[in-house]
């Protein structure tokens, strides 16, 4: 069965156990998680969880239904029409060509955000696929650490 990539937004009550319920559901039923981000929704008792997953259309349908079935789940949104963004932070040695790094980050909505004694920290924020490209391109500046933030999405 053809596997498809899906971004699913889950609006849940902001309770301490809710993330365990969601991740436990994926682990227990053998669903795949590519990335998961979570943060409270300002001015509410709710949190917004964004999950990127892969599966056959049947599996995706089950994931959505099972997520919905969790008692603290308020809403599950699954749309092909989503604006997706992800951010990444990368640490480079200070000896690298800083202006080239600056230019690269600029092409991906980012820049240098911190300069230390022996390293600089740069960030970028863009579509998940482009973040992949950015990381590839950054390899030639010998990054010592790469931290991806996971996908966040909003309905178009």
């Amino acid at each position: 069965m053809q596997k498809v990539r899906r971004v699913i937004s889950v609006i849940v009550m902001n309770e301490s156990s809710v993330l365990a319920r969601v991740s436990g559901l994926f682990a227990g039923r053998g669903y795949n998680i590519e990335s998961l981000t979570v943060a409270p929704i300002p001015g509410s008792e709710l949190s917004h969880i964004t999950i990127v997953t892969k599966g056959s259309p049947q599996v995706i349908e089950q994931i959505i239904k099972q997520l919905h079935k969790l008692v603290p789940t308020f809403k599950v949104i699954e749309h092909e029409e989503m604006i997706e963004k992800e951010m990444v932070m990368v640490k480079f040695p200070i000896e690298e060509n800083l202006s080239d790094i600056q230019a690269l980050c600029g092409a991906y909505n980012g820049g240098i955000v911190n300069v230390g004694v022996d390293m600089v920290i740069a960030m970028a924020a863009d579509e998940p696929m482009r973040i992949g490209h950015f990381i590839e391109a950054a390899q030639r500046f010998n990054p010592s650490e790469v931290v991806r933030g996971g996908v966040v999405a909003i309905e178009r």
Partner: peptide, 8 residues
């Protein structure tokens, strides 16, 4: 009564 049972 459980939508997750349908089409599972």
């Amino acid at each position: 009564i459980d939508p997750a049972n349908i089409g599972k």
